[in-house]
């Protein structure tokens, strides 16, 4: 039995959704700028995507098809529970198909399949302030953003190279948006950074930190780097053991106590689609046999 009748559509009341939409519009008008908003208590703990959930709730309509992924996968706890949450509170259609979805809420990944105009990608953000670990004073970081004083961001990259010989930051890699604001892309792997210049709308919600920011379609997103240490979108140097893809971001899976490992696509929909098309990796079996 659906219980949607007992909640307002998508859980939040209409006034709250209006407040969030206003923040989203402001965010879209000033790409990369962190807009404060009155984040609500949600029926899930902070760190489980309360920011993303509120943004999704403010965007959902009854006609939407929702996809939720966590680290690229549709079937992990966080993804499953958020999907169920909206099924119950908004009664919206859900899908695992990236192309079919109208709104995708994600934690830590951008889908491999290129997104199209009309789609919305909602990110769950733990710490929206890219300067936080270098300058703990929020008053000061806000001033640095407003005055475009971003030298400190490069100090972090400098420290990386000094310590590791290369820029070792591999996720939450800072970007400069439309030549103005430096932004934390949430903890996506830096492999995903180039994908942020996309046709879909990207919305970022940080629930505990009460900040929303956004990228309109086709916004310039440049990963910070040094002339002599240019940005590189890196991934494990393997191909997917199941579908054989060499262009997707891979998870390393330990398969026994001897340390045997395999690499598989972190984007489960992408992997399944390829396998359905007949692609087979080194350790994979054709999809039909597997099902049989």
């Amino acid at each position: 039995m659906t219980q949607s009748g007992q909640y307002n559509f998508a859980y939040l009341d209409e006034q709250t959704k209006r407040m969030i939409r206003r923040a989203l519009l402001k965010g879209l008008a000033i790409p990369g700028y962190q807009v404060p908003f009155a984040s609500r208590e949600m029926p899930m703990p902070y760190g489980w995507g309360t920011g993303g959930v509120q943004v999704s709730a403010a965007c959902l309509t009854p006609d939407d098809r929702l996809k939720v992924i966590d680290q690229g996968a549709d079937d992990t706890t966080n993804a499953v529970s958020i999907r169920k949450f909206f099924q119950r509170t908004a009664d919206v259609a859900v899908t695992e198909d990236t192309t079919d979805a109208t709104l995708i809420q994600t934690r830590h990944r951008i889908p491999e399949t290129e997104l199209a105009e009309g789609q919305i990608l909602v990110y769950q953000v733990p710490i929206p302030e890219p300067l936080r670990f270098l300058e703990p004073r929020e008053t000061e970081t806000r001033k640095m953003h407003s005055l475009e004083e971003y030298g400190l961001m490069h100090v972090k990259l400098y420290e990386d190279i000094a310590r590791h010989g290369q820029i070792a930051t591999s996720y939450a890699y800072p970007v400069k948006v439309q030549g103005r604001y430096v932004m934390d892309p949430s903890p996506i792997p830096k492999f995903d950074n180039p994908k942020m210049e996309m046709a879909a709308i990207q919305l970022f919600g940080a629930g505990r930190e009460q900040r929303i920011y956004a990228l309109p379609p086709y916004t310039d997103v440049v990963s910070l780097d040094f002339e002599d240490h240019p940005f590189e979108a890196t991934k494990a140097n393997h191909s997917c053991a199941l579908c054989g893809a060499s262009d997707s971001y891979l998870d390393e899976v330990i398969t026994d106590d001897q340390g045997t490992r395999m690499y598989v696509c972190s984007d489960t929909d992408y992997c399944a689609t390829r396998r359905a098309q007949g692609h087979v990796g080194l350790q994979g079996v054709p999809l039909e046999d597997n099902a049989a």
Binding site: L134, E149, G151, L152, H154, V155, Y158, E159, I161, A162, R163, D225, F226, E227, D228, H229
Partner: peptide
Amino acid sequence: RMGVSAGGNVGERLMAVGARHY
């Protein structure tokens, strides 16, 4: 900046005025 190396401390002002060559 006590959490940043000596080199990073000296380099900060350079980076703040636009130096981008490590």
